[in-house]
Design a protein around this nucleic acid. Sequence first.
DNA 1: CTTCAACTATGAGTATTTTCATGTTCTAAA
DNA 2: TTTAGAACATGAAAATACTCATAGTTGAAG
Lengths: 226, 226
Amino acid sequence: MKILIVEDNIEISEMISEALRSQRFIVEVAETHTEAMSKINLYEYECILLDVMLPDGSGLSVLKELKSIGKNGSVIILSARDSLEDKITGLELGADDYIAKPFHMSELIARIRSVRRRNGNNGKMSISFGNISITPERFEVYIDGVEVDLLKKEYDILLYMIERQNILIKKEMIAEAIWGDYIDQVDNYDFIYTQLKNLRSKLTKANADVVIKTVYGFGYKMCELT
Amino acid sequence: MKILIVEDNIEISEMISEALRSQRFIVEVAETHTEAMSKINLYEYECILLDVMLPDGSGLSVLKELKSIGKNGSVIILSARDSLEDKITGLELGADDYIAKPFHMSELIARIRSVRRRNGNNGKMSISFGNISITPERFEVYIDGVEVDLLKKEYDILLYMIERQNILIKKEMIAEAIWGDYIDQVDNYDFIYTQLKNLRSKLTKANADVVIKTVYGFGYKMCELT
DNA sequence: CTTCAACTATGAGTATTTTCATGTTCTAAA
DNA sequence: TTTAGAACATGAAAATACTCATAGTTGAAG
């Protein structure tokens, strides 16, 4: 899993590289439009993280050029501001996702994994946190190597939270991600409480060393047991 | 409320569809001038979102052609740039509104609603076929004016099929539309058979004058009772 | 440090969805 | 035209998801 970070600010790219390397990604960095293009021409990257602000041109022009020469690795746009304009232009040019700075590293990692899965890149990737490991292609969950039976909704929630490990997750986001449209303006979240209760109890019973913390008035956070 | 998005960029059209579907609109997408015209000839759309830049001709020519054959659904022009010519030409050709990219989804939705209101369709946004009528906003189904209780999956399927009335629908499409991704490679369609059985029996019990025909080896087709 | 209202947890009951076993219909090939 | 196998239908059972009533927690206001 080779990733190219196109970003002129060295502190930022270092921070990202470090986070990704700790997740066993192989990371390279390009600081300019020119450098990015020459690297892209020389090597294959499975995913490219593209800053929109570069010293010698917009990252979007890299994207454009990249698509015009027929490269098809996944591209995630990093934008300094939450600019809808960049987002639309980026997606229009063929980017796979968009993330606004500042972002949590784990959110970025979640996006990278999700983009990879969407693009069907090699089917054997598993995601893990603590002693929990998930194989999204097979809908299987292991804790300490032992398979755990989860119901579909429980599985959906667990996957969603593990992809966002250590991040505060609003209840609304969970509802939207797992239940989708039908959950527009609900007056209560009983269905989440119940699913979470059951999920938690299964995780505990299987001796998971991660825990779903409640953040009063906000949502939840999946953390490692200290 | 059926909406056609005429837009060649799939990322963008998907972003829009998703936003609209979450608002209970029924959305279809055409990627080219040709596809757009054939869909418009086949079905009635209450609103058409028209990108001005298409691979095989300007969206404006779709608009022109559409007006020349006397279709009167609302049309909203989506322009990649804030181009005054496009706006003027579009409105001159009979578009109902114009919105410049990038736009906020909420703005687009507001425009659609406003256009719809202007065109006098206020409030009742319902889809019907034979004596069946559905109010997607309220998840209600009426047959001969009498409300019929359907379970959620039954409702989903009915809505999906009514939207595609008189069209052959593959089982796979139903599965994908109603059950989503995790149905990928199933070895049987028992769940569809069962849902269909229950839906059919409810429709019959309520004296619907439409019927779900089976097309052996392919799927189903929703037809009016002859 | 109380109090109160909003928020969350939980067990049990209810409803919905899926699976299963079995029977029926359809189509292509003999 | 017969027949075999796949596709589909169906009722009932099993699995899953949701709702409800109730109880416990939290944090801000007094």
